[in-house]
Structures are given as C-alpha cells and as structure tokens.
Amino acid sequence: MSANNSSGLPQVSDRLAYNAMRNWRERLIEGLLLAAAAVSVLTTLGIVYVLVSESVHFFAKVSIVDFLTDTQWTPLFDDAHFGIMVLISGTLVSSFVALAVAIPMGTIIAIYLSEFADSRVREVAKPILELLGGIPTIVFGYFALLVVTPILQTIFPSLPGFSLLSAGLVMGIMIVPYVASLSEDAMRAVPMSMREGAYAMGSTKLYTAIHVVVPAAVSGLAASYILGISRAVGETMILAVAAGMQPNLTWNPMEQAATITSYIVQVALGDLPHGSIGYQTIFAAGLTLLMITLLFNILGQWLRAKYREAY
C-alpha cells in the first residue's frame, strides 16, 4: 500500500470510505431474510389465534371440567357429551403402539448403520430407508387395513376389522425412518476419537456402540424420539382409515377408536353449520392436540439441554 498514487489506485482515505450502497444492500437482504423467517412464525401464531378464539366460544358452552372428565364424546347427538379423554385415549394408545415399534427399531437400525454397516451398505440402505418416509400416509392406511389387519386377525381372531393395534403398528413402521435417520446422524456426529478410545480399551463394536456412542449421542437420540412422538400424535390418515372412527374410551389397542385427528377429519368432511357447537369441537380438539405436541416439544428441549454433550 504505497502513498504513490500514479498506479491509479485511489487514495487510502477513499478506500476506507463508508460504502452506502453496500450497506443498503446488506439491509435489504437482511429484511428479506427476516420476512422469510416471519412467515413461519406468523403462520404458527395465526393457527394458535384461530384455535384459541374458536375454542373460547366452545368453552363458553361447555365447561373445561366436563371437557376433561366426561367419559363420552357425542357432540353430534341430541344428548351431547364432550369428553375429550375419549379421543385422547385413542391418540395415546395408537401413539404408544407406534412408538413401541418405531423407537426400538429406529434405534437398532441407526446403531447398525452407524457402527456396523460398511460405507457401501450405508450409502444404499439409508436413501431407501428415507424413501419409506416419503410414502403417502393414505397408502400406509390401506396397507394397515387390507394387509396388516387380516394378518393380525389370524393371530388374534377376536381382532375387529378396525383397530388401534393395526393402525399403530403401521404408523410405527412409517415413523421408523425418521427415528433411524436422525438417530444415525446423531451417532455419526460422535467423534471417531471417542470410538478409538473405546476400541483401544479392548471393547467390541457392540460394547462401544452401547456404552460409548449411544450415551454420547443421547441428546440427538432424544430429539429423534421427540420427533417420532410428534409424528405419531399428529398422524391422521392411517388412523382414519384403519382404526375406525368410533369414539371409544379405551386403553386396549385391540379395540377400535377415534383419535383427535381422525375425529377432526370425520367432522370436517361432514356439513356442519359454521358456528354450531359441533363445528367448534374441531377447534377445541385441535387445541388439545396442539397442547400435547407442545408438551412433548418442551420436554424434548429440556432433555436436550440437560444431556447436551460437549465433545
């Protein structure tokens, strides 16, 4: 940087001058990025607003105590009851069945892909696995109804044509790729030096995977499980098709039952007048669903913060 200006370079003082154009452009881009981020935040807020404002009308007619404690859900009958537990039980039982499949299977697949499979197997298996997550849920729903239910009926002859068990099992298979893929990412992020440390102590692959890699990846595993739970609680089509839509307060997966989501589909397909109590149940049920997923998300955040591993 010479003081000699004959080379045509501007003087130093000019080169350091405030570049108004560049600054303006930066701000514009920042604004665009903010707007993009705002779309998703505002959408969420909009959904919450609609759910809450419509639910307020609903709870003006039905007390919260009745809503939470009544054991019948018959909003369209003359003798209307609004016991949301009926729908929550269906949601929880089907989710439990699904997670009993998805969490162990997803974790085992992730351990295999991350710790045992050689890279060629992984490069083929992982995309195929993720493809499974791309199958439309309506296809899974009919798979449950037409393939899995008849198979289950040969084992359990008393199983009805619609059941939480069948829908839950298939829902679990649908969720496996999400759990497996995210868990595998979490385990692969564990640094190789930690595995080498374990191998150098004379551990086998399995011992290393279970005692070193899994504990090191626990916050990522928790995140994948939470995503799995959210998927299960929010899943609609498989349940609407294969679990029956009969409101039924039960904790037995061998029965048929409606879930919050399948109830919403059922009612939304009918022709309820806007503003009627039946119409407003959709929003009360939706709000309940939102609260359940929110609860699990908060739990997940808390678990991640608690077990966050710095390596």
Binding site: A198, Y199, A200, M201, G202, S203, T204, V212, Y311
Partner: peptide, 19 residues
C-alpha cells in the same frame, strides 16, 4: 481385542467418555 487388552493407548487429544 485381545491385543488391546494387553496394550493400552493414550491419544493426542484427551478423549474421555461421556461418563
């Protein structure tokens, strides 16, 4: 594995387990 049972190793970067 038997070899590593008799020969220990300490690495360049400390690599304690998450325990």
């Amino acid at each position: 594995i038997e070899v590593r049972m008799r020969i220990g190793m300490v690495f360049q970067k400390p690599n304690p387990f998450p325990k």
